[in-house]
C-alpha cells in the first residue's frame, strides 16, 4: 500500500511532464503553419488538373523550402468563382472563362490573367470487354445527347448504353457540351459522378458504360494505361483516320480531334510568389512533369502568350 501511494504522485508528475511536453510541441507545430499561412498560395478548381498541379506543387515545395501551396479540386467553375470572390490565388480550369464570368469579374474590377500550363486530350473511355474500338466525334455527341441508346447501332453487343459524366461545375462537362455535343443538352440519363476517378472506377465494372475523362486519369500510378478500361480512338469524321489520345505524336500534331489547353488564372498580375510557381510549371522541368502525368506540353504560341501575361 505504501509503495502505491508513494508511486502515484511520481507517476502523476511524470504524466504531467509528458502532457506539458506534448502541449509545448503541438504548440510549436500549431504556430508554424500559422506563420506560413500568410504566404500559403491557395490553388483551387478543375478536378481534371488537381493531381497534376498537386504533384507540381509538391516538387516545387521540395525545391523551395519556404514555399507553401495548397491545391484543392471542386471543378473548373468552382475555381473561377473562387478567383472572382477572391478566395484563392490561382484557379485551375479546364475550360475557358464564360462571358458571364468575365462580366462578373469586370463588375468587381478584376482583370483575370490566363495561363495555359498543359494540354489535355479529352479521352472517351469504355469497359475493356466492349468490342468497339473507334467512334467519330458525331457518334460521341449522339451518344451523350441520348440519340444513340444501344451499342448495337454502333456495331457492338445488344446492350443499352450506360452513360457516365461529370457534374455541371466541371470544365470537362462544359468543354464536351460545347465542342462535341454542339451546345446541345446532355441526355438526362447521364449518371453524374463526382470526379474523373469515379468515372474510371465505374467503367471498370460496367460493361455497357461510356464516359469521358482527362487523359491523365487513364494511367495508373506506374504510368501504364489502366486495366479494365479501354480508351477509344476518335475520328474527326467518317472518312478521316482514327487517333488515340495515348498517341503523343497525334496529340502534338493536333490530329487527335478533342484536345484542349488546361489553364490557370490569377486576379491581375500574379504576385511574385505565384509568378515564381507559374514559371516553374512552364519551365522544361515543370513540363516534364506534365508529360510524366500523361498530359502534353504547351506549344510555342501558348508559351509566348504565357510569357506576356507573366509580365
Amino acid at each position: 500500500m505504501k509503495n502505491k501511494t508513494s508511486q502515484s504522485p511520481k507517476k502523476l508528475a511524470g504524466w504531467a511532464g509528458r502532457i506539458g511536453l506534448a502541449l509545448l510541441l503541438s504548440g510549436l507545430f500549431l504556430v508554424r503553419p500559422g506563420i506560413a499561412q500568410k504566404k500559403m498560395i491557395q490553388i483551387k478548381g478543375s478536378d481534371t488538373m488537381v493531381n497534376l498541379v498537386q504533384i507540381m506543387a509538391e516538387e516545387y515545395m521540395a525545391k523551395n523550402p519556404g514555399a507553401a501551396l495548397a491545391v484543392l479540386g471542386g471543378g473548373s467553375g468552382t475555381g473561377i468563382t473562387a478567383i472572382i470572390n477572391g478566395t484563392c490565388d490561382l484557379a485551375n480550369h479546364s475550360r475557358e472563362w464564360k462571358d458571364k464570368e468575365l462580366q462578373l469579374a469586370a463588375e468587381k474590377g478584376l482583370k483575370p490573367r490566363i495561363f495555359a500550363i498543359a494540354i489535355d486530350a479529352l479521352s472517351i473511355v469504355i469497359n475493356e470487354k466492349n468490342p468497339i474500338d473507334t467512334l467519330t466525334i458525331t457518334q460521341v455527341g449522339s451518344i451523350f445527347r441520348g440519340e444513340i441508346q444501344n451499342w448495337k447501332v454502333l456495331g457492338g453487343p445488344d446492350q443499352k448504353i450506360s452513360l457516365y459524366g461529370r457534374q455541371s461545375n466541371s470544365g470537362t462537362y462544359a468543354f464536351l457540351q460545347e465542342h462535341v455535343l454542339n451546345n446541345k443538352d446532355y441526355s438526362p440519363e447521364v449518371k453524374e459522378m463526382n470526379g474523373n476517378a469515379q468515372i474510371i472506377e465505374a467503367l471498370t465494372r460496367d460493361e455497357a458504360g461510356i464516359g469521358y475523362v482527362g487523359v491523365g486519369y487513364v494511367y495508373d500510378e506506374k504510368g501504364q494505361p489502366r486495366k479494365g478500361i479501354k480508351v477509344l480512338k476518335i475520328r474527326q469524321d467518317d472518312n478521316s483516320p482514327a487517333y488515340s489520345p495515348l498517341d503523343k505524336e497525334a496529340v502534338y500534331s493536333a490530329k487527335y480531334p478533342i484536345s484542349r489547353p488546361l489553364y490557370q488564372s490569377t486576379n491581375g498580375k500574379p504576385s511574385a510568389a505565384v509568378a515564381q510557381f507559374l514559371r516553374f510549371e512552364l519551365s522544361p522541368e515543370g513540363q516534364a512533369i506534365v508529360e510524366r502525368e500523361g498530359f502534353f506540353r504547351i506549344g510555342k504560341d501558348l508559351m509566348a502568350q504565357n510569357e506576356k501575361n507573366l509580365r
Binding site: 452513360l163 457534374q167 441526355s187 438526362p188 440519363e189 447521364v190 449518371k191 453524374e192 459522378m193 463526382n194
Partner: peptide, 16 residues
C-alpha cells in the same frame, strides 16, 4: 454516392 444521379424522371427501381 449510390443512386447514380441521373436527371431523368424515374421509371423504375432499377433506374438511376
Amino acid at each position: 454516392m449510390a443512386t447514380g444521379n441521373a436527371r431523368a424522371f424515374p421509371s423504375g427501381f432499377l433506374q438511376s
